[in-house]
Simulated assay, not measured.
Amino acid sequence: MSIKSFLNGSADLSPIQQKMVAEAFTVDLNEPLVFQVGHLGEQYQEWVHQPIVSKEGPRLFANDVLEFLTRTEWWAIPLIWLPVVCWCLTKSVEMGHTLSEVALMVVFGICLWTLIETNTAHYLLHGIHHKHPTDGLRLVFPPAAAAILCFPFWNLIRLITTPTTTHGVFGGGLLGYVMYDCTHYYLHHGQPSSDPGKHLKKYHLNHHFRIQNKGFGITSTLWDHVFGTLPSTKTIDKKSS
């Protein structure tokens, strides 16, 4: 049976045949990528961590509307989400909380986000960025996708907070996300000349180009310390390329 026949009927293949297809499949970078990467199987992790450095990234979807929604200028993130953060914090004040209490909620929300930011490891959320790390329009997270993910994030916060603190903590988490995305963009396209920006840039590029299974933090190295994914100082200090 040919590889093409395997791919066309992959749902009916045995596990051994599916493995043969995965091992034989080659991604065509000139075609939309999203529905190709699923055929890589166990080869996906190796493939996605072999970065292609180019100013313009590949096409993800054949559909023009879906493709448009995957490309985002960095400034759209604060422009869209900071007003939502302000609304959430205003709502908390209207519910009777003092500014000090709201500030504590925000800090808690930001800390919650820093934990979530270390867990973005599949193609649509983060894998595309690892494969094409210099594509500026796919460096920040698309607002349409972020809006969808806000619902489970809101429900998660509602489970662990009281009705009057949900807005404040959610606003803090959203603020953490904005800080994350803007910092992430700056680490790739900015040229910090002093710490902490200079260290964070070196730390993050080390994650992309040297040891992809360590150094996941963007705005903080806190959770890399906690989860044991902190790269050695010797590795970080080596020149990233």
Rank of each mutant, 00 (worst) to 15 (best):
I110M: 14
T162V: 12
K4V: 12
F61T: 02
L115R: 02
S54R: 15
I148D: 05
F108A: 14
H130I: 00
L222R: 02
D64R: 13
L29G: 05
A22P: 01
L112T: 12
P15H: 05
G127A: 06
S2E: 15
G38S: 12
S5E: 15
T134R: 11
P196W: 11
D224E: 02
C111E: 05
I77Y: 05
Q36P: 09
N155D: 07
L40A: 09
P133I: 00
H97F: 10
T90M: 11
F6A: 13
K198T: 08
I211Q: 10
P51N: 09
L66R: 07
T114S: 07
K4P: 00
E56S: 11
I3V: 13
L156V: 06
V34Q: 14
L124S: 11
L175P: 01
H122R: 15
T120N: 10
T221Q: 04
L137K: 10
T161C: 10
E31R: 14
F141E: 05
G96R: 13
T26K: 12
V21G: 00
G173A: 14
N119G: 00
P78R: 08
H208K: 06
S14L: 08
D28R: 08
S193H: 10
A62D: 14
L60K: 05
T120V: 13
V48W: 05
P142E: 13
T120G: 01
P83E: 12
W47K: 02
N213K: 13
I110L: 11
Y44R: 06
Y186A: 12
Y177M: 06
P196V: 03
E73D: 13
C182L: 04
G217A: 09
V37Q: 03
A24V: 02
Y44E: 03
G172Y: 04
T233P: 00
G38P: 10
L13T: 02
N30W: 01
I110V: 15
V65G: 00
G215Y: 05
I77R: 02
D12T: 12
P142T: 11
V85N: 04
I211K: 08
V102P: 03
G168Q: 04
A11F: 15
L187M: 12
H39K: 15
P32D: 11
F209I: 07
F141R: 00
K4Y: 11
